[in-house]
């Protein structure tokens, strides 16, 4: 347990330090969201209607962008080999790394959501609904994305390959995330149904993600 806590602490510290790059995700999120009105036009009612979708897409792309860092830096300096060889089960270590990554890169996105919601003319209920769905959904993005990150690091290919592999897998999260936010804003559906499915997706990814990522690291690093 202390080993895992140490791993989480270390990863967060590295991510927030100069050169860590976790906060670039938030900047990217901000930029994508600010770009949207330029593409759509400064039509406030339309932006209100599209707001949740825009925020979700921005968060999806931003979390994808930072995933690259999940294993690459550790692979470069050799600490990934130590983690793989260590006595802590690799699945747990992967889960800890993903958790640290989410705390450093995913949580800031949720903190930034209210500000961006203001710009998209979302009211308080809508903004809090989007933030809540992001809180429930972004862990699933991180944990499924971790599989892609593990594959990419063993293949020494990151970037676009990672995006191509991970994006189709994140479609369910996107569907239910946006659906739950829309349900909270305009109905007619109850908020609870899509939101519980979103939570279920996150829980499934907590199981599948670490195992698949650990298998990929074990088979891939030699």
């Amino acid at each position: 347990m202390t080993a895992l806590a140490a791993l989480i602490r270390r990863d967060i510290r590295i991510a927030l330090r100069v050169g860590g790059g976790a906060l670039i995700g938030v900047l990217f999120f901000l930029t994508v969201t600010v770009l949207m009105p330029f593409a759509i036009g400064p039509d406030l009612p339309l932006l209100t209607r599209l707001g949740p979708a825009i925020l979700w897409l921005g968060a999806l792309l931003a979390s994808l962008l930072t995933l690259d860092r999940l294993f690459t830096a550790d692979h470069e300096d050799g600490s990934l080999d130590l983690i793989v060889m260590g006595r802590t089960p690799l699945e747990l270590a992967c889960a800890a790394k993903a958790l640290a990554h989410w705390l450093a890169a995913g949580l800031p996105l949720i903190v930034a959501t209210p500000v961006l919601g203001l710009m998209l003319n979302l009211d308080a209920t809508a903004t809090s609904a989007v933030a809540l769905t992001l809180l429930a959904g972004t862990p699933a993005l991180t944990f499924t994305g971790m599989i892609g990150a593990a594959l990419a690091v063993t293949l020494h290919r990151g970037g676009l390959l990672l995006a191509v592999l991970v994006l189709p897998l994140s479609i369910p999260v996107l569907i239910f995330g946006v659906a739950a936010s829309q349900a909270a804003i305009s109905g007619p559906l109850a908020f609870g149904t899509p939101f519980s499915i979103l939570c279920a997706l996150s829980l499934v990814s907590f199981v599948v993600g670490p195992f698949a990522a650990a298998a990929s690291l074990r088979h891939g690093l030699d």
């Binding site: 594959l151 063993t154 088979h219």
Partner: peptide, 15 residues
């Protein structure tokens, strides 16, 4: 190496 990576992706996809 590619086979093992593709195998993991295939199984994750099947799930």
């Amino acid at each position: 190496r590619a086979a093992r990576a593709a195998a993991i992706l295939t199984l994750v996809g099947a799930l």
